[in-house]
C-alpha cells in the first residue's frame, strides 16, 4: 500500500466521483420522467399505448445497456443525432433504467389498485380522481424500495459510460491503472468511492421509506 500514491491520485478520483454522481443524478431524473410515461402507457385504456409501453420495456430489458449506449453515441450520427459523450451517457442510462423503473411503478400501482379503485369509484370518484387521490398516494410508498434498488443499479451501471470516454470513476480507474501499474491501490480507491456513494444513497432510500411509512 503506497500512501503517497493514493494521496496523489485522490484529487483525480474525487473529481471523477463528482461526475459519477452528476451523471447518475441526471440519468435518474430522466429515467423517472420516462418511466412515469411508460407506466402510464402500460396502464392506459388505449391498446396502442399499452403495446408501445410493453414493447419499450421488453426491448430495453431484453438487450444490454452497453449496446444501447453505443447505439446512441456511435450510431446516433448516422440518423442525425450527435450527442457528446456526456449527453449520450445521460440519455442512454436514463432510457435504460426507465424500462426497469416503469415496471416498479406499474407493479406498485397494480398492487394498490385491486379493491381500492372499485371502492373509490363506488364513492363517485372519476377514474382520474381515483388514481390521483386514492391509488397514487398509496402506491408511492410501495414504489420507494423497488425504485431505490433501480437507483443503486443505476449508479453501478453509470460505469458503462467509461467506454465512451466520460471521465467518471471507472474511466479514471482504468486510465490510472494503465499509467501507475498499481491496479489494487487504484481499484481500492475507486471501489471505496462507489461504496460510499451507494451507502449514502441506500440510507437516503431508507429514510424516505420510513418517512412515508403509514401511521
Amino acid at each position: 500500500m503506497d500512501i503517497g500514491l493514493i494521496a496523489r491520485l485522490l484529487p483525480h478520483f474525487l473529481q471523477a466521483a463528482g461526475l459519477t454522481i452528476l451523471i447518475s443524478t441526471l440519468a435518474l431524473a430522466l429515467g423517472l420522467a420516462v418511466a412515469a410515461g411508460i407506466a402510464a402507457a402500460r396502464l392506459s385504456p388505449s391498446r396502442v399505448l399499452r403495446g408501445f409501453g410493453a414493447a419499450y420495456v421488453s426491448l430495453i430489458r431484453g438487450t444490454p445497456c452497453l449496446i444501447q449506449l453505443f447505439l446512441i453515441y456511435f450510431g446516433g450520427p448516422q440518423v442525425g443525432i450527435t450527442p457528446g459523450p456526456f449527453a449520450a451517457g445521460v440519455i442512454g442510462l436514463g432510457l435504460n433504467i426507465a424500462a426497469y423503473m416503469a415496471e416498479a411503478i406499474r407493479g406498485a400501482i397494480l398492487a394498490v389498485d385491486r379493491g381500492q379503485s372499485e371502492a373509490a369509484r363506488s364513492l363517485g370518484f372519476s377514474r382520474g380522481q381515483a388514481m390521483r387521490r386514492v391509488i397514487l398516494p398509496q402506491a408511492a410508498r410501495l414504489m420507494i424500495r423497488p425504485l431505490g434498488v433501480n437507483a443503486i443499479a443505476l449508479v453501478k451501471g453509470s460505469s458503462l459510460v467509461a467506454t465512451i470516454s466520460v471521465v467518471e470513476l471507472t474511466y479514471t480507474a482504468q486510465r490510472l491503472i494503465g499509467s501507475t501499474y498499481r491496479p489494487f491501490e487504484v481499484f481500492g480507491i475507486a471501489a471505496l468511492l462507489y461504496l460510499v456513494i451507494i451507502h449514502t444513497l441506500r440510507r437516503g432510500i431508507d429514510r424516505l421509506d420510513r418517512a412515508y411509512a403509514p401511521g
Binding site: K156, T170, A173
Partner: peptide, 10 residues
Amino acid sequence: GTPLLLQLFL
C-alpha cells in the same frame, strides 16, 4: 457494491 466493469478491469 461496485460496478462489474471496474471488477473486470481489476
